[in-house]
Computed example of a mutant assay.
Amino acid sequence: MLNPDKIQVYITVDQEGKIVLAEIGEKIIPTIPYDFFFLVDEETQKSLQGSLRSYKVVLNGMKPELVYDNALNSSEPTTIDSNK
Rank of each mutant, 00 (worst) to 15 (best):
S47G: 05
M62H: 09
G61V: 05
F36K: 03
R53S: 15
F38Q: 05
Y55D: 02
D35A: 11
P33H: 11
P64W: 07
D41M: 06
F38P: 02
E43C: 06
F38V: 06
Q49W: 03
E43L: 12
V57Q: 02
R53Q: 14
G50I: 01
F36A: 04
I32D: 09
V40S: 00
E42K: 14
E42A: 14
K56D: 02
D35L: 05
E43I: 11
S47N: 13
D35P: 06
R53C: 09
P30H: 11
L59E: 12
P64F: 08
S54F: 11
S54G: 09
E43M: 08
L48S: 01
K56L: 10
S47K: 15
K63E: 14
L48G: 00
Q45E: 15
T44W: 01
F36M: 04
L48K: 00
V40F: 10
R53H: 15
K63G: 03
L59A: 08
L39H: 06
R53K: 14
F38S: 04
P64R: 08
L48M: 09
L59F: 11
Q45H: 07
L59T: 06
D41E: 13
Y34W: 08
R53L: 13
K56F: 04
N60W: 06
Q49T: 08
F37C: 08
G61C: 08
Y55M: 05
E42L: 13
T44A: 10
G61N: 13
R53P: 01
V57G: 01
P30D: 10
D35C: 08
F36N: 06
K63C: 07
L39R: 10
Y34M: 09
E43T: 13
P33V: 10
L48Y: 00
T44L: 03
Q49G: 07
F38D: 04
F36R: 02
D41A: 06
S54E: 13
E42R: 12
Q49K: 14
V40A: 02
I32S: 11
T44H: 02
S54R: 12
Q45Y: 02
